[in-house]
Structure formats: structure tokens, C-alpha cells
Design a protein around this nucleic acid. Sequence first.
DNA 1: TATGAATGAGAGTTCATTCAT
DNA 2: AATGAATGAACTCTCATTCAT
Lengths: 213, 213, 213, 213
Amino acid sequence: MMSTTDVAPRRLRADAARNRQALIDAAQRLFTTRGLSVTLDDIAAEAGVNVATAYRNFANKRELLQAFLQQISDDAIRIAEEAAAHDDPWQGLTDFFARTLRLMAENRGMHDVVTASYTADWMQHLEDHVNPALQTLLTRARKAGLVRPGLAPADLGVVLQMLATVTDIETPDTAGLVRRYLTLVLDGLRLADKKLPGTPPSSTAVHTAVAQS
Amino acid sequence: MMSTTDVAPRRLRADAARNRQALIDAAQRLFTTRGLSVTLDDIAAEAGVNVATAYRNFANKRELLQAFLQQISDDAIRIAEEAAAHDDPWQGLTDFFARTLRLMAENRGMHDVVTASYTADWMQHLEDHVNPALQTLLTRARKAGLVRPGLAPADLGVVLQMLATVTDIETPDTAGLVRRYLTLVLDGLRLADKKLPGTPPSSTAVHTAVAQS
Amino acid sequence: MMSTTDVAPRRLRADAARNRQALIDAAQRLFTTRGLSVTLDDIAAEAGVNVATAYRNFANKRELLQAFLQQISDDAIRIAEEAAAHDDPWQGLTDFFARTLRLMAENRGMHDVVTASYTADWMQHLEDHVNPALQTLLTRARKAGLVRPGLAPADLGVVLQMLATVTDIETPDTAGLVRRYLTLVLDGLRLADKKLPGTPPSSTAVHTAVAQS
Amino acid sequence: MMSTTDVAPRRLRADAARNRQALIDAAQRLFTTRGLSVTLDDIAAEAGVNVATAYRNFANKRELLQAFLQQISDDAIRIAEEAAAHDDPWQGLTDFFARTLRLMAENRGMHDVVTASYTADWMQHLEDHVNPALQTLLTRARKAGLVRPGLAPADLGVVLQMLATVTDIETPDTAGLVRRYLTLVLDGLRLADKKLPGTPPSSTAVHTAVAQS
DNA sequence: TATGAATGAGAGTTCATTCAT
DNA sequence: AATGAATGAACTCTCATTCAT
């Protein structure tokens, strides 16, 4: 499975891959703790390499951000698929919320990263992969009479976004706070005989409010 | 008792006030559509004046932002107080949410503006004025058996923040979308006999992730 | 002695003259305490008028500085002439130094004001008026065998400049310090039989080191 | 034990060092001919590099100024120490003055640079290193009956400062002019039996009159 | 005439990105 | 491939000077 072009530079590639990952990790740490305005110099320093090395791996700051978002996608998609496969659909639903929110809480401040204008594509990608799993989940829960009628995957996305704001609130017990409002919303979701007014959005993509750089 | 010399300077002030207001309006437009990173040059241009004129009116970018936030405060406080004075407390509550959310929707993308570290004071000021009204409202609603036990003003703040994210979603019918999720949450709030787990946060101040400048 | 054109606006002119003088006084205070970089806004404020009023009286900052220097000239010239008229030439000489240095000490920091490039003209003007008096003084002192041979007015200017630096030294007793070094230099000057090497400069104009604005 | 990998970076450093030195030299030229208000843009241009390169080497304008002052310190300290070690103390004294004044003359206009408020530290450093040498010198000269009683190192500093003003005077023969007034002052200093009135200053730090930026 | 307001032209500083080694 | 160094284009803020009232 290894072509000849892979053989010679293998060592170097390993180094390069290590650098690449170090940069993504550093970006994760800094983007999410200090926002989009961190300098590439700082990210490179945090990763222990030179800025120019960052540019060898990523065409620009934006690409680095996207590589970092890619990782989040992978995790989020896995969570949705495991939730859809859960025996108990209600348990699947609560698991989905709980695990996704934990993922978001670990990336404190990600909210404004996600809000960056050029993450629209990423959001689309994420929805494309997560929504099928959520649709499965909702269909099963609805059949079991566990949720309100008319709910779509996009509704879950909205709810998730709403709850994500809770992880940004300064408190000694983020988990407890998330549980409080997750309960509130889940209680609203499980009124099996009351349809919600209106329709879900076609996508949860948000207006772009944070500037590029 | 009003001489012409009193009138004359008022004309000048009118011009200056017009510029000042133009700057605040421009700031509102740009801060909320393009985020905190807009340059003062851009804001001044949008207002049709020179940057230095902006600096004549506001010591720095931050002061301009705060002047803009001040206007929002005034509106928000009035809404809370009128809601508290409503005959029907449940109607007062729904009015409060609906009107505040409309205010937020008009200031699209304000979420990340509010998240800026130096708006902490502003948040405090806002809570100090709004919370008493909300406390009145909640007490009355609770006495009428209309809401879950144990709710505090801060809970309403959190709920509001959660719903505010909905106004950021790209959709042809923001109002309809807001109604959809407001219904969901209100349905969760009115389960008069189910206490929510945990406690409300001491303040809805959020972690600062967006950069200063 | 008052023409008709003087009659009508007399009151206004009095006001204007007052403003003009207030500006010069303010300039004196601020130029000499805070250096050339004070803003015209600050000078106007110190004078209790608006900047635009300053511009009605002086074409630009530079002209204001020159008006202020003019006042100094007047004082300095008077001191030199009185010294030249003194009965005892040595006493005249020491008086000249002592009084001029006091004038300089009162204008603390004037050194860099004087150093401004565009004060060359002013220096020339000053020398033109002071040097004749100093020449008289030196001739008389030399005849009385009180000073070294070959001294010129320009030498006294240099000595004055040298001693002026002493007034810039931070000390609780500026006067005492000035006396110390004035003694040192006067002792050097009165060695009646030792000629100094070289010749005096043609003018004590200094190289321009401080920038315009 | 020096591999080629050791050599390579030294070449780079050589370039950087060249730029750094070019910046210091440019700063020397411009600070001393045009004063503290020269822009970093101008200094960078004079050095043939971009402003940002200046900022790579010096955190800000002030640091560049200080780097330039550092060089002067080094020279001045060496001069004082060599003077103190001179066999003939009087010769040592005159050498000290002559050489230091030449150093100052090479840095034409440095006077107002030294006057900047933030060079206080530098002055302190300089005095700390130079004064011991001067004390030695004075003690030896006094024992040999060559100078007035009661002289302290600070007196020599003051005298130096006084004479430094001479180097600012526009003349075809700066050296001759310096010699003229140095003679005058030295003649004053060597009156072995006349004590000077007053006491030397505790430090020759000057009042700050020149603006910061 | 005197004023409040406005402005253009910088100055200091930062940063994403590129170059040379 | 990785680095140290360099740069151009901004950005915030200031100030001498002019305009409109």
C-alpha cells in the first residue's frame, strides 16, 4: 500500500505531519482561548515552530482555522452516529446533546470562531454528515411517542446552538448549568402532542459578524 | 429668558449632535454586521465624517462602542420595566422575551459585540437595572402558578441569550423562527410542578474570547 | 496720536491685545515647562481662549514662539545695557551674568526652545542689540585690568550658554549651584595676564537639533 | 568542533547585526542632527530598511535611542578609566575633558537627546561607572596641589556639560573653540587655594523639558 | 471677533505574509 | 524542510491648521 514516492521522504513526512498536528493543536488552544485575533506568530510559537513553517503547512491563517474545524467535525459526526445507533432513542438524543455540548465546552470561546464568515462551508459539511444520523434518531423517537411532532434535524442544531451559549457563561459549574438548561429544553421537546409553530431553518448557518483577520 | 446668544450655540451643537449620532448609528451598523474588528476609519467613513471627528466625539474605539451599548441598555431596561408592570404576568413574560428578542434581532450579530471583554461593566449595569423588574415578574407569575419553581432573573437572562442565537440564523423569516423556539422554551418554563436541576448563574457574563481591539 | 481708524474698534482691540498677551504668557509657561511639543490647543486652553483665536493672533505655532522670544529679547537687552552703564565694570559684568542667568532659570527648559532651528534669526537680533553693550563693558573692564585680554562679547555669550546648562540641573538650590560655577568661570575670566587660546565664535548660534513641530 | 550547521546561522546573524548596527548608526545621525522627534520611518529609511525591521530589532523608539546611548556610555566609561590611570593626574584630567568633549562633538546636538526624560536611567548608569574613576583622578590631583579644594566628580560632570554646549556652536573650528573655553575653565579649576562656594549637585541629571515621543 | 467643529497628514506600532539562507 | 529576517499594508490615535457659524 506504500508507493515508491512515499519511501524516500518518509522520515521528513513524519516530521512534517508532527508539525502540522502541533500547529492544529496550538491553533485549537489559542483560537478557543484567545479568539480569532491571535497572531500566527503566537500559534507557531505555541506549537514550537517558526511562522514560516506554519506557512509551509497551511496557505494562510484561514486554512489553519479550517483544519482545526475539520477535527471538530470528525468528533461531532462520530457523536451523532453513535447517538443514532443507540438502543433507546431518547437516551440517544440526550447523549447527543450532552456529548456535543461537552465537546463545545472544551473549546471555550469557540463560538466566535464558528461565527467567522468563512466557516459557512464547514457548517454545511458538518450538517451534511450529521443530519442523516439525527434524522434517524428523531424518526425513532417520534415513533416511540417521545418527542413533539414536526421536529427536524435542523431543530436539534438550533437547540444545540442555543445551549452552546450556556457554556460561555462564567460559572464555577459549567456542567451543572448546562444540565439545568438542557433539562429545560428537553422538557420542551418531549411534549409529544404539541406541535411547534413554524418550520425549522434550512440550515443553521449564522450571519457573519466577526471579521476575517 | 432665552436670548439669541443662547440659540446660536444650540445650532452648532445640533450639527455636532448629528455627527455624533451618525457615528453611533454607523458603529451600530458596522459593529453588528462586521464585528468588533471594524476600523474607526470605516465607521467614520460610513458616518460620512473624518476619523479625527470620531475622535473628537469619542476618546477611543471603546468609548464609541460603549455609547452604542448605552442606547441598547436604555431600550432593554424600559422593556423589562413595562413587562413587570403588565396586568397579566404570563403576558408580561412573553412580551419581555418577544420585545427583547426583536431588539436583538435589529442588532444582528450583536452577540459577539456583547462578548467583548470590556463590556463587562455594561452587562453589570444592565443586569442591575433589569433584574429587579424581572424578579417582580417572576414572583407574580409563580404566585399565579404559571412557571416552574425556583426560577430567577438570571434564568431569564440565560434563556434570552440562548434565544438570541436564533436571531443570527440565516432565514427568510427570523420572526417565525424566533417564535418557534420561544414556544419551545416557554413550554419548558411553564411546567409549574417540575423544578429545574441546579441553580441559575450569578450573572450571565460570558467568557471573553473576542480580542480587544 | 490716535487715528480715526483706531477709534471705533478700540474696545475690541483692547480685548484682542489682552488675548494676544495671554497667549504669549501661556506659551511662555508651557514652552518652557513642557518643551516645544505642547499643542496649540493646550496653550490656548492655558490662555483661556479657543485655538482659532490663537490663529487670529499668530499665523502659526512658530510665530507664537517668536513673539514669546521677542519678550525675552527685550528683557535681555535691557539687562545688558544696564550692566554696561554700571559704574564698576566688574560689578557690571557679574550683574550681567547673574541677572541673565536668573532670567534663564525662570524659563526652565528654555534651552530646547532656543535650540529650535527657526530661532536663528532671533539669536541674531538678540546679539545685534546686546553685543554693543557688552563690548562697552569689556573694554572698560579690560582697561581696569580686570579681565583677560582678547575677550569679545561673543565670549560672554558662550560663557552664558555654558552656565545656562547649570540651571537645568535638578537640585534644591539652583541659585547656589549657579553661583558655584559662575565663580569658577569668573575666576577663569579674571586672570588678567593670560590670554585665552583661539578666537571667539562669530556668533553663538547653535546647530539645530530639535525638530520643527 | 564547528560544523557547517553552526556556520550557516552566523551568516544570517551577520546580516541582522549589520541591519541592527545600521539602525543604531542612522539613529545616531538623525537623533543628534534632528533631535528626538525624528520618526522611526526616517531612521529606518536612513538605515535602508523597512520600519518593521526596526521594530524587529527594537521594541520601540525608546529602545533604539537607548541602544545608541549604550554605545556612548561604553566609550565614555573607558575614557574616564584611562584618565584615572594616567601617570600625571593633571594630564589625566585634561585628557578626560578633551576626549569626552570630542566624543560629544562627534555626537553633535546630543545635548537635547540626553535631556529626554527617559534617559535618567542611562545617566545614572553612566555616573555609577564614571564617578569612581573621576574620584581617583581628583584625589590624586588634589594631593599634588593641582586643583581647587572641595571638587567632586559631579563638578567635573557639570563642567563637562557646560563645555558640551560649546560643541553645539556653529563654527569652522569646533576643536579650537572647545580648547578656548576648556582653557578658561581649567584655569578656574586649578586655583589651588581658592575653595568654590556651595556644593556640587548630587547628580547632573537635568530637568526634562523635551517631550517624550 | 471668537468659537466649536472638522480635517489631512502623519506617527508609532502590529501582523499576515514572503524571501533568502 | 525549516528558519530568521524582512516587508507592505493596516490600524489607532494626534495635531497643526481651516471652516462655518
